[in-house]
Amino acid sequence: MSLTPEIAFETHREHLLSMIWLRMGPDLRKRMDPEDVLQEVAIEAINYWHTLDDDTNARAWLVTLAKRKLARILRDQVGVAARDPRRENAIQTDLPVADRRSGPVTVADRKDRLVLLEDALQKLKPEHRDVILMARIEKMSAKDIGAEMNRSENAVHLLLGRALKSLAQHLKF
């Protein structure tokens, strides 16, 4: 079965939704449903599929689409200049993730895990949070992260290691 935008999207759907949920933060999630954002990403994926030159890059490509979509939404919904959504400071709420595709307990588990991760990420230093988001959630390469943060690849790995230590402490691992 050759890779089509639908199949690529469905393959990475869970990951994309988690990324969108985390990136939006509680404030924005009050205004928009992460599932709606995901669907808009799906539409863009279908519309711009022809620009993807290599199927093996599908995930990275979808993540980039999602990030651009979120930046536009922030600009439109929040009414601020297109700041880096990673720098948004989230306020704690109890809103559940509106994942209507799961049964009751699955929704609770999923929401609990995401909230736990989000809470822990918020307690990190900004550069620790950023490197984790870029490396593990957006799956950027060390080289690309280094370019964003003006560091060498080795420094990125070290920073990520320290960030994980800090995260582990907050998660009590």
Binding site: E10, T11, H12, R13, E14, H15, L17, S18, M19, R113, L114, L116, L117, I132, R136, I137, G161, L164, K165, L167, A168, Q169, L171, F173
Partner: peptide, 17 residues
């Protein structure tokens, strides 16, 4: 502990389907 944190992030983000 750091590897556990790494694993937790991957687990939360969901698997490929």
């Amino acid at each position: 502990g750091r590897l556990n944190a790494l694993e937790f992030i991957d687990d939360v983000l969901g698997e490929e389907c």
